[in-house]
């Protein structure tokens, strides 16, 4: 049995009168890529926002490495080793690429560790090294996604939470983004991935959960789930 890194129990989240998450539970084990798939409005982003503390649930618990973080504010969670790459990348457009990366290391105190992480990111994303002094807002969509992921790596994360990393990118770049996600696992990190592109997401993940209208309706091994008739019809366009 592998070590459980993230455990979500019976999450219930409301937006005013709208019951967005209706008691969802799942877990992410160390070293896995777990994907969360579902249609628009199923509650995928809400789930991620609740896990990383941007919003707090009405009921339920979030445990990271066995420690309860349900009400922990977002800014403290990064320092615990879980980083969230938000939907739409949300890079700081008016700051340079380099300053964006440095902000990624905000929760880190060790100067050497930050320097090492920076060097690793520049090796993995040479385009960011070339454009380090450029304003982040002038980067292309693909480069901005690389920056958002590079920035996340600067926090020395164990668990990387990715929200729609391939959104709005050309097919070529989509392939590249998924390769990067795979590289995170190879580097010993754990990934929780939310994707519209269910086919690609299931092809690289170990396990998957299907979210429909705030409820997890199916879960299991990604390869087996991809064979499931209902999943194929609803999400894989087959």
């Amino acid at each position: 049995m592998s070590e459980v890194l993230l455990k979500v129990e019976n999450l219930n989240v409301y937006y005013g009168m709208i019951h967005a998450l209706k008691g969802i539970s799942f877990e992410v084990n160390k070293g896995e890529i777990v994907s969360l798939i579902g249609a628009n409005g199923a509650g995928k982003t809400t789930t991620l926002h609740t896990i990383t503390g941007l919003i707090h649930p009405k009921e339920g618990r979030v445990l990271y490495k066995g420690e309860e973080i349900t009400r922990t504010p977002a800014h403290k969670i990064v320092g615990m080793g879980m980083v969230h790459v938000p939907e739409g990348r949300r890079i700081f457009q008016g700051l340079s690429v380099y300053d964006n990366l440095l902000l990624g290391s905000y929760s880190r105190k060790d100067k050497n560790e930050i320097k090492e992480n920076l060097e690793k990111v520049f090796v993995q994303f040479p385009r960011l090294a070339e454009r380090r002094t450029q304003l982040a807002g002038t980067l292309s969509g693909g480069e901005q996604q690389m920056l958002a992921m590079g920035r996340a790596l600067l926090s020395s994360p164990e668990l990387i939470v990715l929200d729609e990393p391939s959104m709005g990118l050309s097919p070529l770049l989509v392939g590249e983004v998924f390769e990067i996600v795979k590289s995170f696992r190879e580097a010993g990190k754990t990934v929780l991935l939310v994707e519209q592109n269910a086919k690609k997401a299931m092809s690289i993940s170990d396990r998957a959960y299907v979210l429909e209208n705030g409820v997890i309706t199916m879960s299991g091994d990604s390869r087996e789930l991809a064979e499931d008739e209902r999943v194929r019809k609803a999400y894989l366009g087959a």
């Binding site: 503390g53 700081f92 008016g94 700051l95 902000l103």
Partner: peptide, 24 residues
Amino acid sequence: SKPGRAMVAVSEDRDAARLMGINT
């Protein structure tokens, strides 16, 4: 400065700044 950069980040995007570990 680190707080100076954090101020720019908060003014651009408060939630993204929180996700960096910035106590807004």
